[in-house]
Design a protein around this nucleic acid. Structure first.
Length: 181
DNA sequence: TTTAGAGAACGCG
DNA sequence: CGCGTTCTCTAAA
């Protein structure tokens, strides 16, 4: 299968959109949840608020940001609740932004239940691109929505954890926590 | 805008 | 350690 993508990413395509975000503390560290008009567009984990805000700005070049709790507070609360209670499902309206290929990977990821893991190989098989193992890993790496899109549940064939955008230690912690629940 | 090259959270010999 | 496979981004033409 081929599906050419034309993933235009011109920073000014959407006439300076506004993104609201809120930051809170969890057992994993500080968490930032961001929202566009379409839904939650980013869930980032980091050491401090400043780093998180910078990270967000990198993700959405050209956007305007509003550090306002109101529109995002319920989402943030739910994410933090999820961290505290492993196994709970995290169902938010997501604003997925990526190529067709990335969305296929991300959508498939959402179906992986907490407490279980899959390998990159298996994931590639599930999206019908058994050859694209490495590309699948890249798509996981491009995930902007921590926890909601559980890329932390994808591991290597040899049992290794591979990487995690927000630190392998957190990945390890999440897997262990979910397995225990 | 098209293209070539590099590199990526892999897996295998 | 090197190579195959696929996707993406970047520099260059």
């Amino acid at each position: 299968m081929h599906l050419t993508t034309t993933a235009h990413r011109s920073p000014f395509s959407a006439a300076t959109e506004t993104i609201s975000y809120a930051i809170g503390e969890s057992a994993l560290g500080w968490i930032l949840v961001a929202r566009s008009t379409a839904g939650v567009c980013a869930i980032l984990i980091g050491a401090d608020a400043e780093t998180l805000a910078a990270d967000l700005a990198d993700q959405f070049p050209g956007a305007r940001f509003r550090a306002v709790a109101a529109p995002v507070a319920p989402d943030l609360a739910e994410v933090i609740r999820f961290v505290d209670r492993p196994g709970a499902s995290l169902e938010l309206a997501l604003d997925l932004r990526g190529t067709v290929f990335q969305r296929r990977v991300w959508e498939t990821l959402r179906a992986i239940p907490a407490g279980t893991t899959v390998t990159y190989t298996e994931l590639a098989r599930r999206i019908g691109e058994p050859q694209a193992v490495r590309a699948v890993a890249s798509a996981c790496a491009a995930n902007r929505l921590a926890l909601a899109i559980p890329c932390h549940r994808v591991v290597r064939n040899d049992g290794g954890l591979a990487g995690y955008r927000w630190g392998v230690e957190r990945k390890r912690a999440l897997i262990a926590q979910e397995a225990a629940a």
